[in-house]
Structure formats: C-alpha cells, structure tokens
C-alpha cells in the first residue's frame, strides 16, 4: 500500500469513528455546536425477538432510537400491502411506543405478517425511517366444544285404541228404532236382521281394532319435554358461544421477528 493510500484509510477510519461518536452523542454534539450536523438523521427500531402477549392487558413494546432528538411515529401495516395500515402511533418526541395489537375498529389483528415502520423527523428537516417485520400468531384459546343437540323424544306415539267407538255404533242399529221410531210402527216388529248384521259386523271389526289396532297420537308431555330440552340447549349454546368468544378475545398471541424479511 502506498503512503497516500494508507493515509486515506486512516482518514476514513477516523471519519467512521467520528460518525459513530456523533451518533452516540448526537444531540449534545449538535446542540453544543449550534450548527447543522453533517451526519444524516438515522433511526433504529427494535421489538422483542419472540414474545407471547395477552392482548387484553398487554401491548408489544416498540423501541425507537433516532440518531439524534427527533419526533417519531410508527405505523403497522400488512406486510404484503403497505397501504393497508392497521395501526398508527401518536407522534412522540421520544420514548418507547407500544402496539396493543389492535387493528381497525379496535379489534385484535388476525394472525399474519406485519410491517412495523418508524419515521423520524428532526427540527432541521432531516428524516429517516426504518422497518422490521413481525409475525403475529394467535395461540389456541381454551374453548369449550358445543354440546351435541339433545335427544328428542318422539312427539307422536303409536298407541292402542283408547276410544271404543265401535261399541255405541254397534248397538245403535238395534236400539235406534225403539228410541227414534214410532211405537206403533215398531209394534210387532220382528228382530231386524239388517240391524243385527250391521251390529255384528261393526262389533267384530271394533273388537279387532280395539285389541289389535294402533293409531298415532300426539304426546303433549313429550312435546313439552322436547321444548324444554331445546330451550335449555339453546341457552347452553349461547353461554358457551359467549364464553368461547371471551376466551378467544383474551387468548395469548405470539409475536416474533421475521428475520427472513428483506
């Protein structure tokens, strides 16, 4: 290496040292100097490399370090769509920012990859920005499986014949003429074979139907029990749904740095 070249290397190293020193004490140096800093404004952003948060009561700290005093603002957007901003911090002079993992409409952001962008603006018009990518993963909530539908009782039952209609109908042909007819016209009347035939036929058919017959009958007791079971099931489902929603809302979220990001 020539002496000139060696001198240039030493100069550049010194410059780098100076820049580093300036970046470590930027405000003091700048204010003491009272003149525009030759070093451009830079900003660094950092979050925990891998953490688990409970969004209901915790937030993700975002550490922002401008190279000198500056106002900083952070935004979080969907990683693949920078225009889809889900959260924006207040503009602050310094200090840590924290993202409560809320998105638009004060709802918790879904699982996915997000970009955290910070911008710094100093009083001299200098600007700087930095970005990092995080992956948000909702951890499984401790939920309860909905109960199966209740077993319903049959509301229509096949029951034996309970009303012996055949008895009065079988007797009617035998007694009707006596009750409804004229005594003078019934006087001396021999046994009416037609009435006996009908009475016997209806009687036999009625007996068979009464002993063997089955018919469908609505069971009001089972209807009532089913209605109660259904109402109880609906109530239980609503309670479980509510409890599960609360569990999901308060479920833990894992946030980790996506180091593969460019």
């Amino acid at each position: 290496m020539t002496p000139v070249a060696r001198g240039l290397v030493r100069s550049s190293r010194a410059l780098a040292w100076l820049l580093a020193a300036a970046s470590r004490q930027p405000a003091v140096a700048q204010q003491q100097a009272g003149a525009p800093s030759p070093v451009p404004l830079s900003v660094q952003v950092a979050v925990s490399a891998d953490t688990i948060l409970f969004p209901a009561r915790e937030a993700l700290p975002i550490v922002v370090r401008p190279s000198r005093p500056a106002r900083v603002v952070a935004t979080v957007s969907v990683a693949d769509d920078p225009a889809a901003v889900v959260w924006r911090s207040d503009t602050v002079a310094s200090g840590p920012l924290s993202w409560d993992l809320q998105g638009p409409g004060a709802s918790r952001v879904g699982s996915g990859r997000y970009a955290i962008r910070v911008s710094a603006h100093d009083s001299e018009g200098g600007t700087a920005s930095a970005v990092l990518f995080v992956v948000v993963t909702a951890l499984p909530a401790d939920t309860v499986a909905p109960p199966p539908p209740p077993e319903m009782l049959p509301e229509t039952l096949l029951v034996g014949q309970t009303t012996p209609w055949a008895i009065p109908i079988a007797f009617a042909p035998i007694v009707l003429p006596s009750y409804l007819g004229r005594r003078s016209l019934n006087y001396g009347r021999r046994a009416d074979r037609a009435a006996l035939v009908v009475a016997a036929t209806v009687g036999i058919a009625g007996y068979v139907a009464f002993t063997r017959g089955r018919h469908l009958e609505r069971s009001s007791e089972n209807v009532r029990l089913n209605a109660e079971a259904r109402a109880l099931h609906v109530r239980r489902l609503a309670e479980i749904r509510e409890a599960n929603a609360a569990a999901r809302a308060s479920a833990a979220v894992r946030v980790y740095l996506d180091r593969s990001a460019p």
Partner: peptide, 13 residues
Amino acid sequence: EPDFGLRGLRGLV
C-alpha cells in the same frame, strides 16, 4: 267418522 284404530277402518254415524 271416528277412527276405530285399524288403518282404513272407521265408524260411521
């Protein structure tokens, strides 16, 4: 037309 209990069998009054 009361149902006697066997399908299709009904009384008649």
